[in-house]
Simulated assay, not measured.
Amino acid sequence: MPEAMLEIRDLHAYYGESHVLHGVTLSVPAGEVVTLLGRNGAGKTTTLRSIMGIVPRAEGSIRLQGKELLGLAPFRIGRLGIGFVPEERGIFASLDVEENLMLPPQVQPGGLSVAEIFELFPNLKERLRSQGTRLSGGEQQMLAIARILRTGARLLLLDEPTEGLAPVIIQQIGRVIRTLKEKGFTVLLVEQNFRFAATLADRHYVMEDGQVVDMIPNDQLAARMDQLHERLGV
């Protein structure tokens, strides 16, 4: 396995009295696409939110290239080079595409230029002056991903990027993720669409009840489909 960019060890997370993550351990190697698979409520989104420091309470260890993240403020975690695209996308409705795109600060050198972003997402160039409220769901998702590529983040956390989107948009997002991997980005992807994830990922972590219960390298998927069907109900 290549050197890990992200290492999570024995992670526990809580919302009030609810103990949501129960000792999650996983590794995201640099330059790979890694998926978190699992039914609704398995703890996938909470894992991403824990990495970003936006759960009320977390214990254990989350290390980015050896640096401990637990206990850091969310804005400090972002400045270390992690970009988070939440499931709700977070597009500012009153701002147009260009204003949304330029809003986040650059946190590291090496972010994509606006020209490179428009190569990845030509739709956004056409909609540059459109307000966030006028974008389709697919265009909002593209903008949410594009926005963090400018910042210089090298680890991308994508929460359900294909949810509710048309097949042609899902294909486009798949092409973008492959291109980003070729450019050296590392991606941790939460995805309900298992067939989409299978075309992209190097390895899959399966979560149940707030725990990682399996890790399947992509080249072993075919041999372990029965297990996955059972665990995921797909």
Score class of each variant (00 low, 15 high):
residue 102 M to Q: 14
residue 105 P to Y: 02
residue 91 I to F: 04
residue 96 D to L: 09
residue 85 V to Y: 05
residue 96 D to S: 04
residue 90 G to Y: 10
residue 118 F to Y: 07
residue 122 P to E: 02
residue 94 S to N: 15
residue 134 R to C: 15
residue 118 F to M: 10
residue 134 R to Q: 15
residue 136 S to M: 05
residue 94 S to K: 11
residue 86 P to W: 01
residue 132 G to H: 05
residue 90 G to W: 08
residue 134 R to P: 12
residue 135 L to H: 05
residue 104 P to C: 08
residue 97 V to G: 03
residue 110 G to M: 00
residue 113 S to W: 04
residue 134 R to M: 14
residue 135 L to W: 04
residue 114 V to K: 14
residue 110 G to V: 00
residue 111 G to Y: 10
residue 103 L to P: 13
residue 111 G to V: 09
residue 85 V to S: 03
residue 96 D to T: 05
residue 86 P to E: 03
residue 89 R to L: 03
residue 128 L to E: 11
residue 121 F to W: 05
residue 98 E to G: 08
residue 116 E to N: 00
residue 85 V to C: 03
residue 134 R to N: 15
residue 117 I to E: 00
residue 124 L to Q: 06
residue 91 I to C: 08
residue 90 G to P: 01
residue 97 V to K: 05
residue 109 P to H: 08
residue 135 L to F: 02
residue 136 S to H: 06
residue 108 Q to E: 07
residue 102 M to I: 10
residue 98 E to N: 14
residue 93 A to S: 08
residue 132 G to I: 11
residue 112 L to W: 03
residue 128 L to N: 09
residue 93 A to N: 09
residue 137 G to P: 05
residue 96 D to R: 11
residue 97 V to F: 02
residue 122 P to H: 00
residue 114 V to L: 12
residue 106 Q to S: 15
residue 136 S to K: 11
residue 115 A to H: 13
residue 93 A to E: 13
residue 107 V to R: 02
residue 107 V to S: 03
residue 100 N to T: 08
residue 94 S to A: 14
residue 93 A to C: 13
residue 92 F to R: 10
residue 124 L to F: 05
residue 87 E to H: 12
residue 90 G to Q: 10
residue 88 E to C: 04
residue 113 S to D: 02
residue 93 A to I: 15
residue 97 V to L: 06
residue 119 E to A: 11
residue 124 L to R: 10
residue 115 A to V: 09
residue 124 L to K: 03
residue 118 F to E: 00
residue 137 G to C: 06
residue 117 I to C: 00
residue 113 S to V: 07
residue 121 F to Q: 01
residue 124 L to W: 12
residue 124 L to S: 10
residue 130 S to L: 13
residue 89 R to A: 05
residue 127 R to P: 03
residue 87 E to P: 11
residue 90 G to C: 08
residue 108 Q to P: 14
residue 117 I to W: 01
residue 85 V to D: 04
residue 123 N to M: 14
residue 115 A to T: 11
residue 91 I to S: 08
residue 133 T to V: 09
residue 105 P to L: 01
residue 114 V to D: 14
residue 100 N to Q: 07
residue 119 E to Y: 12
residue 106 Q to Y: 13
residue 100 N to V: 11
residue 116 E to T: 02
residue 92 F to H: 07
residue 112 L to V: 02
residue 99 E to A: 15
residue 115 A to K: 10
residue 123 N to A: 15
residue 111 G to R: 03
residue 114 V to C: 15
residue 104 P to Y: 04
residue 123 N to C: 14
residue 95 L to F: 06
residue 89 R to C: 10
residue 89 R to I: 02
residue 89 R to V: 12
residue 104 P to T: 08
residue 99 E to H: 13
residue 101 L to E: 10
residue 114 V to I: 11
residue 127 R to V: 09
residue 109 P to G: 04
residue 86 P to R: 05
residue 107 V to Q: 03
residue 114 V to H: 12
residue 109 P to V: 05
residue 110 G to T: 01
residue 97 V to N: 04
residue 107 V to T: 07
residue 94 S to T: 13
residue 100 N to R: 11
residue 126 E to D: 12
residue 91 I to K: 06
residue 88 E to A: 07
residue 101 L to A: 12
residue 122 P to A: 06
residue 119 E to R: 12
residue 116 E to I: 00
residue 109 P to W: 08
residue 97 V to H: 07
residue 96 D to E: 04
residue 86 P to V: 06
residue 108 Q to C: 09
residue 89 R to K: 08
residue 113 S to E: 00
residue 107 V to M: 00
residue 102 M to N: 10
residue 97 V to D: 01
residue 135 L to Q: 01
